[in-house]
């Protein structure tokens, strides 16, 4: 891990996208920024702009309306990047799984690197998920893991 890799590990900027959550997970994600958890300790910043972001945190289910938005945001993030799906809904659709408009979890729409289960997951779990995503991103950038972009595209669409 060279200087670049260290810098990458120390400065993951986060884009948080609420696909269709009940806001429980979102509150926990925001809680990570508070003095109690303070993710900025790890250089993490909540950046609302995919062009600046390294890690995409997705909460909530994907549905017919927001799948396109999620894909667009993911596409606008420059490489290397990683995706964390947070909470039951983002993993599988959760309690909304059977709804007429719900496509399910995030995985069918964009490739996911880290799954953080829970309804809602604790901030500690979210932070750990983000840290794991940074490791995945590192491995991918250093060529150990091939990008997984094509494997799950448009499965549900």
């Amino acid at each position: 891990m060279g200087i670049l890799g260290k810098a990458r590990a120390k400065s993951p900027w986060i884009l948080h996208f609420d696909a269709g959550a009940c806001n429980g997970c979102d509150i926990e994600v925001i809680a990570c920024l508070t003095p109690v958890y303070d993710v900025e300790r790890f250089g993490m910043m909540n950046i609302g702009n995919p062009k600046h972001a390294d890690i995409l945190l997705v909460t909530g289910t994907c549905n017919l309306r927001n799948a396109r938005v999620l894909k667009n945001l993911y596409a606008q993030m420059p490489e290397p990047k990683a995706v964390v799906a947070i909470g039951a809904c983002a993993l599988s659709g959760g309690v909304f799984h059977e709804c007429y408009n719900v496509l399910g979890g995030v995985e069918g729409i964009i490739p996911v690197d880290v799954w953080v289960p829970g309804c809602a997951p604790k901030p500690e779990a979210i932070i750990e998920g983000a840290v794991m995503a940074v490791q995945r991103m590192q491995e991918r950038a250093s060529g150990k893991v091939q990008p997984s972009e094509d494997e799950s595209e448009d499965e549900h669409a």
Partner: peptide, 15 residues
């Protein structure tokens, strides 16, 4: 809060 390391701006630029 505790805040990031002092070297954080360099990490950001490097990344």
């Amino acid at each position: 809060r505790l805040g990031p390391p002092i070297l954080q701006p360099f990490y950001d630029v490097g990344k």
